[in-house]
């Protein structure tokens, strides 16, 4: 169980939300046994919580400049001027 939770936390956002939507679809189709439906519900709530917390936790975007040599440095978009480039 703890392993599964860990896995849920490390999941990519796209996969998490994809799985959440798949679970909603399956649950709404109504052709799963009741016990499975309850499991799906739990899993779905868990995934939605993970998605939500991922969204909430990302407050400031990380922008990195990669130069020709592959060196990465933090980049402040405000550096971008008003030049039409």
């Amino acid at each position: 169980m703890s392993e599964e939770k860990q896995e849920t936390k490390d999941i990519r956002f796209e996969e998490a939300i994809g799985r959440l939507e798949e679970i909603v679809r399956r649950l709404e189709s109504g052709d799963v046994p009741l016990e499975d439906a309850i499991d799906l519900y739990k899993k779905g709530m868990e995934l939605s919580a993970v998605c939500h917390s991922k969204l909430q936790s990302a407050e400031k975007q990380l922008v990195t400049l990669i130069d020709k040599d592959g060196e990465a440095t933090a980049f402040d978009p405000a550096q971008g001027g008003n030049r039409d480039e």
């Binding site: 400031k60 980049f75 978009p77 971008g80 001027g81 480039e85």
Partner: peptide
């Protein structure tokens, strides 16, 4: 990196999807 485009792009990305 010096144009208005990079600023517009980053501002919009940050506003919509900082994730």
């Amino acid at each position: 990196p010096t144009g208005a485009a990079v600023r517009d792009i980053c501002t919009t990305l940050n506003r919509r999807y900082p994730l």
